[in-house]
Computed example of a mutant assay.
Amino acid sequence: MTTLRRAASVPGTRILGLGSAQPEQVVTNDDLSKTMDTNDTWIRERVGIVERRFAGEKDTVVSMAVEAGAKAIADAGLSPSDLDTVIVANCTTKSPIPNAAAQVAELLGIKAAGGFDLNAACAGFCYGLGVASDLVLSGSSKRTLVIGSEKLTDIVDPTDRSTAIIFADAAGAAVVGPSDEPRIGPVAWGTAGDLVEMIGMTERQHIYQEGQSVFRWATTKIAPIALKALDLAGLTPADVDVLVPHQANLRIVEAIAKKLRKEGAREDMVVADDIVYSGNTSSASIPMAMDHLRAAGKIHSGDVALLVGFGAGLSYAGQVVVCP
């Protein structure tokens, strides 16, 4: 029997650097009230959003990914030649080919990179982070750039207040590389395909969601996924310094945090609330929230972060990471 040589493996992986990018245009709740039947109080009470960013004509999934990716590479103290793989998690590119990853790699100067897009909607970054970690662990990649980038305004009906008040545009990125010990935990992921109709696209290619059904599902099913991720990492809720759930809705974020505290998470656990000033940016929300928390001095290198994403599919994924 022929024996194949295995690629070199490493003891563990870690996030080496973070970066994020947002368009310049700030859109407030009052701005939206000029084009639809809504107001600032109504939006704040239901989803917790104060403002969000909308892309301009020149902003694309690729351009925002390049900006966030470049920042993450610089934050890691690396150059593009130090990376060999690019993963772009997204669900909003206008065309499935060419993929965003190949374009991003070329624009960043990562030559001959392995590159592919990944679509797990709002869970995309956590899926991508899990894949990136496994690529490095197996020896298939030395260092991987994983980016969540979305231009949701391309698929939102601007007159539909159930979606137009929520979604926004942005990118968030992380560089994953080898570590002397595990600093990215195993991914706890899955799908609820029987609920696929809760979030989807209309015939006119606009996103829709059954808001109340998604809310009930997320507030009951996501905390157990977060607890599973902790168990896979050999930790307990008390070990968590920062909780970074997908920024779908502030009420969902707060409900997940409340359930984790009932299971032993500390009262001083930092809870990401980037939704307030960034809106729901799908696969970009988790890495961008981490980057913003760090910039604000609310989390620090070495903190234990619990990440959990969830969205259309219905797809979900979570893992524990140590902050870079």
Rank of each mutant, 00 (worst) to 15 (best):
A102R: 08
T92Q: 00
G48D: 07
E67Y: 07
G69W: 08
T93G: 10
G77M: 15
A74L: 09
R53V: 03
L118S: 00
E106V: 08
L83S: 02
F54P: 01
A120E: 02
A89W: 02
L107W: 06
N99F: 04
S63Y: 13
E106R: 08
A120H: 05
P96K: 04
L118R: 00
F54I: 01
G115V: 10
E57G: 09
D117Q: 04
A68S: 10
K94F: 12
F54H: 09
V86K: 03
G69T: 05
A74S: 11
A121N: 05
A74W: 01
D75Y: 10
V62E: 11
C122I: 07
I110D: 00
D117C: 05
A121Y: 03
A65M: 00
L83H: 02
A112V: 08
V88A: 10
L108D: 02
K94N: 13
D82Q: 14
V62Q: 11
I49G: 07
E106N: 10
L108G: 03
R52G: 04
G114R: 15
D75N: 11
A68M: 08
L108R: 07
F116S: 03
C122V: 11
K58C: 13
V104P: 07
N90S: 13
M64Y: 12
A101E: 01
R53M: 04
L108N: 06
A68L: 05
D117L: 02
G77E: 15
A55D: 10
G115A: 13
V50Y: 10
P96D: 02
P80H: 12
A105H: 03
L107Q: 15
R52I: 02
F116I: 05
A76D: 13
A74T: 09
V88E: 04
